[in-house]
Design a binder for these strands. Structure first.
Length: 281
DNA sequence: GATGAGCGC
């Protein structure tokens, strides 16, 4: 196992006594506010505005965070020290997120992304730590384990961008399906397996069960270069990743190309064929 | 087990 208990200085949470990858049905003593909110939430499945009293207490940042705020400027600028967190439930707010890691003293802030129109959480957020190392420890230690007060697994990853940065299209992705993966294969391992031979690799993702966080045994690898995608389909089929040979197939692309990504002649054919432009945007 | 969906104003 690559994972290790958090090194000195960081008190591991109580559920972290064993292998973090072994999911536990551990239930932490439940803060009442969260439970109450959870119940409110479950009763009427509301599409629209958060009930008043959604947030039990406004978030006064713990005083220790302010100390670290000062440190922040000294920390390497441009260093990514935020984690992206997904699969959040609706009642999980900034308080909840910072609370989880408060004992480390290394959390700077948390942000839950909400829909601008409805104000409802989008199901993901960001957590900023005092350093990349701190964030990495959290990622290693918690990813895949149960979130407090739930049997929902943490889904954590590096934040790809800093706040305010724009995600730019680097062109289309060429994706392959990879099946027969061993249970221990992670996004990172999958990507590394291809990286040396296919430099255009953009990312790899192992599909996991939403609640347990366990691998479903298949995933996707994205390339920037179509030729590398095509080569990988044959060259990597049957190659070992972790302990098992991969079975590679074409990816069923759920996300259609944008109109600009089609070759010119093909665009016209689509239009003549009555395919609406807006379906492709 | 067999075709996801996840990046901030």
């Amino acid at each position: 196992m690559m994972h290790q208990p958090a090194p000195g200085g960081v008190v591991p949470p109580p559920q972290m006594t064993g292998d973090p990858q072994q999911l536990q049905q551990y239930q932490q003593p439940t803060p009442q506010q969260w439970m109450m909110m959870q119940q409110q939430q479950q009763a009427p499945p509301q599409p629209v505005p958060p009930p008043a009293g959604w947030t039990p207490q406004p978030v006064p940042p713990p005083s220790q965070m302010q100390q670290y705020q000062a440190v922040q400027g000294a920390v390497g600028a441009g260093e990514i020290r935020s984690l992206w967190i997904g699969d959040l439930q609706q009642w999980m707010d900034e308080n909840y997120l910072t609370g989880i890691f408060a004992h480390t003293g290394e959390v700077l802030s948390a942000k839950v992304i909400r829909n601008k129109q409805t104000g409802l959480p989008e199901g993901y957020g960001f957590i900023e730590f005092i350093s990349r190392g701190a964030a990495e420890r959290i990622l290693q230690t918690y990813n895949g384990t149960s979130m407090p007060s739930t049997d929902q697994a943490f889904r954590l990853n590096w934040a790809a961008l800093g706040p305010g940065e724009k995600r730019q299209d680097e062109g289309p992705d060429y994706t392959i399906f990879v099946g027969d993966l061993a249970a221990d294969v992670t996004d990172y391992m999958l990507q590394e397996t291809f990286k040396a031979v296919y430099p255009s690799i953009k990312g790899a993702k192992v599909v996991t069960d939403r609640t347990t966080g366990r691998s479903k045994g298949y995933g996707f690898v994205r390339f920037g270069d179509e030729n590398e995608q095509i080569r990988a389909m044959t060259e990597m089929n049957g190659m070992l990743c972790s302990t098992r040979p991969m079975r590679i197939g074409p990816a069923a692309n759920k996300k259609p190309l944008t109109m600009q990504q089609y070759p010119k002649g093909y665009q016209e054919a689509l239009i003549l064929g009555g395919l609406d432009l807006y379906q492709l945007k």
